[in-house]
Deep mutational scan, measured.
Amino acid sequence: MSRESDVEAQQSHGSSACSQPHGSVTQSQGSSSQSQGISSSSTSTMPNSSQSSHSSSGTLSSLETVSTQELYSIPEDQEPEDQEPEEPTPAPWARLWALQDGFANLECVNDNYWFGRDKSCEYCFDEPLLKRTDKYRTYSKKHFRIFREVGPKNSYIAYIEDHSGNGTFVNTELVGKGKRRPLNNNSEIALSLSRNKVFVFFDLTVDDQSVYPKALRDEYIMSKTLGSGACGEVKLAFERKTCKKVAIKIISKRKFAIGSAREADPALNVETEIEILKKLNHPCIIKIKNFFDAEDYYIVLELMEGGELFDKVVGNKRLKEATCKLYFYQMLLAVQYLHENGIIHRDLKPENVLLSSQEEDCLIKITDFGHSKILGETSLMRTLCGTPTYLAPEVLVSVGTAGYNRAVDCWSLGVILFICLSGYPPFSEHRTQVSLKDQITSGKYNFIPEVWAEVSEKALDLVKKLLVVDPKARFTTEEALRHPWLQDEDMKRKFQDLLSEENESTALPQVL
């Protein structure tokens, strides 16, 4: 008996699950189920560990084997000379395990699969056993689809999209007709009724959600790893209520002995410091949205989908001078704002400069500016000194954290500008005749005249004003913003236009 009217009423009120309206889709043409990776026989039982391990490696599972009696060998002398080797079968990115008779397991190899009674669906509900069930008529011709799209860092995100009359449910929550939600590992998919569980979705590319604290899981769906560094790992996640993407940084307390840091400095109150950081608001710094204190720290951040500045300059790639100017102007505005709010970044580098898009002209935002507030000064500097390429001379020669101030950030900005303009770092371990530390503390950077011949004198002058060993003589952010190279009204107008595109209400910060 159909429950279409009941569920449609529920759909009209929406769902609290991570779902959002989605535009129309072009329906895929039908194809045989076997060619799409559906096993030839149905099963109602969950797999054992041996079955799972075989399939996850990209080899055929026991459900897909063919009797050897149906095959015969071709003698080598009868092999056609022009026969080309077969292409290897792509490894599946996800697996659906059937929970009921009449449904088959599915190895997801393609990027898009339609499910329903219509014969054009890649996964067609046409098993005779299924057709005899009382629920068969409640399934729509095109009930739902599972697909994946390219996300940040060229990774993939799996989604389920509801197109049914009676509802598609993920972990008992209604997706909603015309809406989608991301699928995470071990999600249970039910059709027409929330208790009519048909599939379990296994994402073969992500970790299980159960490793994360419950308070975090209640608000966010964790997904793929976006990156990792000395101070922690960053994962893509989704807000459950809105389906908006965020980035979540995970900082290990054990790695940084944060408990010991608190004992050594009783004034170090991470929760208080995070609340201060959350109040920071500038178009060129990453917004801190939320914070969870569990076995590790979880910092929920605004997501930038254009990648890191590092990706644009790695491998001796240089940027156009006009692009360097647009990016560097924004970096200076961001660091100036942090300094005005009493925050020294201490870890400025291309990896911590994020881009809003893949376009050459785009907004940038500074991230990882609050680590000293979370990890403690000593722990952070011990970590950073392991990779000193961007560290100021006074940091390398000081004991502990004494003896330096916000000028350290201006040195790091000078190193970043040098790399963007030239395509190579000013200080490098590859210069074996002088140690990296000695290069930095003496201010002897690697200047290649033929490379810098293409760079304007004004740009080079600003680099020199920032890479000054004496912090008292080094340019401040205010002085850098007043430098002739940055007195470019076309560049500032472009920045204002980019801000307006992102948010019509965002105004250009005042600069002296």
Results as ranks from 00 to 15, higher is better:
residue 145 R to T: 00
residue 153 K to T: 14
residue 12 S to A: 11
residue 253 K to W: 02
residue 14 G to L: 05
residue 48 N to H: 10
residue 119 K to L: 09
residue 258 I to K: 08
residue 17 A to D: 05
residue 66 V to K: 04
residue 223 S to E: 13
residue 40 S to M: 03
residue 204 L to R: 02
residue 109 V to N: 06
residue 261 A to V: 13
residue 45 T to M: 12
residue 38 I to P: 09
residue 154 N to Y: 14
residue 263 E to N: 03
residue 266 P to H: 04
residue 177 K to I: 10
residue 263 E to Y: 09
residue 183 L to D: 02
residue 206 V to H: 09
residue 151 G to D: 08
residue 78 Q to N: 14
residue 100 Q to S: 10
residue 96 L to K: 00
residue 224 K to G: 04
residue 245 K to R: 09
residue 21 P to Q: 09
residue 185 N to D: 06
residue 135 K to W: 15
residue 20 Q to E: 09
residue 73 S to N: 13
residue 191 L to D: 03
residue 132 R to N: 09
residue 54 H to L: 12
residue 127 E to Y: 10
residue 134 D to Y: 11
residue 242 T to N: 01
residue 211 V to G: 02
residue 22 H to V: 06
residue 270 V to E: 13
residue 76 E to Q: 15
residue 155 S to G: 11
residue 19 S to F: 01
residue 79 E to S: 14
residue 263 E to H: 07
residue 31 S to K: 12
residue 122 E to T: 08
residue 109 V to C: 00
residue 34 Q to K: 06
residue 34 Q to N: 08
residue 250 I to M: 06
residue 253 K to H: 02
residue 112 N to K: 13
residue 235 K to G: 15
residue 144 F to T: 00
residue 186 N to Y: 03
residue 258 I to A: 05
residue 59 T to I: 08
residue 116 G to Q: 01
residue 38 I to W: 10
residue 157 I to E: 01
residue 261 A to Q: 01
residue 136 Y to R: 05
residue 210 S to E: 05
residue 70 E to W: 05
residue 221 I to C: 02
residue 218 D to L: 08
residue 83 Q to L: 09
residue 17 A to S: 05
residue 255 K to Y: 01
residue 176 G to R: 12
residue 9 A to N: 10
residue 141 K to D: 00
residue 76 E to S: 15
residue 32 S to M: 04
residue 159 Y to Q: 03
residue 238 F to E: 01
residue 102 G to W: 13
residue 171 N to W: 03
residue 113 Y to N: 14
residue 85 P to G: 15
residue 149 E to Q: 12
residue 99 L to F: 12
residue 118 D to N: 11
residue 257 A to T: 04
residue 54 H to P: 10
residue 64 E to K: 01
residue 234 V to F: 02
residue 164 S to L: 03
residue 94 A to M: 15
residue 130 L to E: 03
residue 9 A to M: 12
residue 80 P to Y: 12
residue 24 S to M: 14
residue 172 T to W: 06
residue 46 M to W: 09
residue 98 A to Q: 11
residue 202 F to H: 01
residue 236 L to P: 05
residue 226 L to Q: 03
residue 79 E to M: 06
residue 261 A to S: 05
residue 186 N to V: 06
residue 4 E to M: 15
residue 154 N to C: 01
residue 49 S to R: 07
residue 164 S to P: 00
residue 38 I to L: 10
residue 210 S to V: 00
residue 147 F to E: 00
residue 258 I to W: 11
residue 71 L to G: 02
residue 166 N to K: 07
residue 15 S to K: 05
residue 4 E to Q: 14
residue 199 F to W: 00
residue 62 S to D: 15
residue 237 A to V: 15
residue 29 Q to A: 09
residue 138 T to E: 02
residue 42 S to R: 14
residue 162 D to A: 07
residue 95 R to E: 01
residue 90 P to Q: 07
residue 232 G to P: 00
residue 87 E to L: 07
residue 87 E to S: 09
residue 19 S to Q: 15
residue 5 S to R: 14
residue 167 G to L: 00
residue 141 K to L: 05
residue 143 H to D: 01
residue 251 I to M: 10
residue 147 F to H: 00
residue 6 D to S: 11
residue 165 G to M: 09
residue 269 N to W: 13
residue 169 F to D: 02
residue 91 A to H: 13
residue 105 N to E: 13
residue 252 S to R: 06
residue 29 Q to S: 07
residue 55 S to K: 08
residue 259 G to F: 14
residue 244 K to S: 06
residue 232 G to M: 02
residue 256 F to S: 03
residue 40 S to V: 08
residue 109 V to P: 02
residue 3 R to D: 11
residue 94 A to V: 01
residue 109 V to F: 07
residue 131 K to I: 11
residue 252 S to V: 09
residue 262 R to A: 11
residue 132 R to V: 11
residue 92 P to L: 15
residue 31 S to W: 08
residue 196 N to G: 15
residue 15 S to L: 07
residue 184 N to M: 06
residue 128 P to C: 05
residue 235 K to A: 03
residue 213 P to W: 06
residue 74 I to S: 12
residue 104 A to C: 06
residue 180 R to N: 00
residue 82 D to S: 06
residue 50 S to H: 02
residue 17 A to I: 06
residue 138 T to F: 13
residue 118 D to S: 14
residue 18 C to T: 11
residue 176 G to L: 02
residue 108 C to E: 04
residue 59 T to D: 06
residue 102 G to C: 13
residue 59 T to V: 05
residue 265 D to T: 00
residue 145 R to G: 13
residue 82 D to I: 12
residue 118 D to W: 15
residue 33 S to F: 11
residue 104 A to G: 14
residue 252 S to H: 04
residue 84 E to H: 07
residue 168 T to A: 03
residue 22 H to R: 09
residue 23 G to S: 07
residue 70 E to G: 03
residue 167 G to D: 00
residue 163 H to Q: 12
residue 152 P to V: 08
residue 8 E to S: 07
residue 8 E to G: 11
residue 118 D to V: 12
residue 231 C to M: 14
residue 91 A to Y: 13
residue 156 Y to V: 14
residue 256 F to Y: 13
residue 270 V to N: 15
residue 269 N to T: 10
residue 231 C to L: 12
residue 110 N to D: 05
residue 107 E to K: 15
residue 180 R to A: 04
residue 254 R to A: 03
residue 69 Q to M: 07
residue 68 T to F: 04
residue 133 T to P: 05
residue 37 G to T: 04
residue 129 L to Q: 09
residue 163 H to Y: 05
residue 187 S to D: 03
residue 54 H to G: 12
residue 74 I to K: 13
residue 87 E to F: 11
residue 168 T to V: 05
residue 272 T to W: 03
residue 160 I to T: 05
residue 88 P to G: 04
residue 224 K to Q: 03
residue 85 P to F: 08
residue 117 R to A: 00
residue 140 S to F: 02
residue 161 E to D: 15
residue 188 E to G: 01
residue 187 S to C: 06
residue 14 G to C: 10
residue 117 R to W: 01
residue 237 A to D: 02
residue 110 N to G: 06
residue 197 K to L: 03
residue 181 R to S: 07
residue 239 E to C: 00
residue 146 I to N: 14
residue 112 N to H: 08
residue 35 S to Y: 07
residue 88 P to F: 04
residue 16 S to D: 05
residue 242 T to W: 01
residue 136 Y to T: 03
residue 235 K to V: 06
residue 127 E to T: 12
residue 25 V to Q: 13
residue 178 G to M: 05
residue 2 S to C: 08
residue 99 L to D: 08
residue 162 D to F: 03
residue 198 V to T: 07
residue 244 K to T: 14
residue 217 R to A: 00
residue 80 P to M: 14
residue 190 A to M: 12
residue 225 T to H: 11
residue 53 S to K: 03
residue 244 K to F: 06
residue 216 L to I: 15
residue 244 K to E: 08
residue 147 F to C: 02
residue 47 P to F: 06
residue 180 R to C: 15
residue 176 G to T: 05
residue 41 S to W: 10
residue 175 V to C: 11
residue 80 P to S: 12
residue 108 C to A: 15
residue 27 Q to V: 10
residue 136 Y to D: 11
residue 238 F to Y: 04
residue 24 S to V: 02
residue 131 K to E: 08
residue 242 T to R: 07
residue 228 S to T: 02
residue 144 F to E: 01
residue 26 T to P: 14
residue 131 K to A: 02
residue 29 Q to L: 09
residue 172 T to F: 14
residue 184 N to D: 09
residue 268 L to A: 11
residue 185 N to S: 11
residue 107 E to M: 15
residue 70 E to Q: 04
residue 120 S to R: 12
residue 219 E to K: 05
residue 103 F to M: 05
residue 242 T to D: 06
residue 33 S to H: 13
residue 226 L to C: 12
residue 197 K to W: 01
residue 58 G to V: 07
residue 50 S to F: 15
residue 241 K to L: 07
residue 192 S to A: 13
residue 148 R to M: 13
residue 272 T to R: 14
residue 13 H to N: 08
residue 114 W to N: 11
residue 231 C to W: 15
residue 11 Q to C: 14
residue 214 K to E: 07
residue 82 D to T: 11
residue 263 E to F: 12
residue 37 G to A: 08
residue 78 Q to C: 13
residue 240 R to M: 08
residue 20 Q to W: 06
residue 252 S to Q: 07
residue 10 Q to T: 03
residue 260 S to G: 12
residue 226 L to M: 09
residue 86 E to W: 08
residue 179 K to I: 06
residue 145 R to W: 09
residue 72 Y to D: 14
residue 157 I to Q: 02
residue 252 S to D: 15
residue 14 G to S: 13
residue 190 A to L: 00
residue 56 S to Q: 05
residue 80 P to E: 09
residue 250 I to H: 04
residue 65 T to G: 04
residue 245 K to Q: 09
residue 28 S to M: 13
residue 216 L to N: 00
residue 262 R to N: 00
residue 122 E to W: 15
residue 5 S to A: 15
residue 92 P to W: 12
residue 139 Y to D: 01
residue 255 K to T: 05
residue 165 G to N: 15
residue 98 A to S: 06
residue 60 L to E: 03
residue 200 V to I: 07
residue 267 A to L: 07
residue 142 K to F: 08
residue 184 N to C: 09
residue 233 E to H: 15
residue 101 D to A: 11
residue 108 C to R: 04
residue 143 H to G: 02
residue 215 A to E: 15
residue 12 S to H: 05
residue 153 K to C: 00
residue 156 Y to E: 03
residue 45 T to Q: 10
residue 209 Q to I: 10
residue 248 I to C: 06
residue 200 V to E: 10
residue 87 E to T: 10
residue 239 E to M: 05
residue 96 L to D: 01
residue 85 P to S: 10
residue 20 Q to C: 02
residue 52 S to H: 10
residue 135 K to D: 04
residue 78 Q to V: 05
residue 183 L to V: 14
residue 25 V to T: 08
residue 100 Q to M: 15
residue 120 S to C: 10
residue 54 H to E: 14
residue 86 E to V: 12
residue 140 S to P: 00
residue 20 Q to F: 03
residue 41 S to P: 13
residue 47 P to K: 03
residue 91 A to R: 07
residue 201 F to R: 01
residue 99 L to A: 06
residue 218 D to R: 03
residue 105 N to P: 13
residue 252 S to E: 01
residue 196 N to K: 13
residue 98 A to E: 02
residue 247 A to N: 00
residue 67 S to W: 01
residue 105 N to F: 14
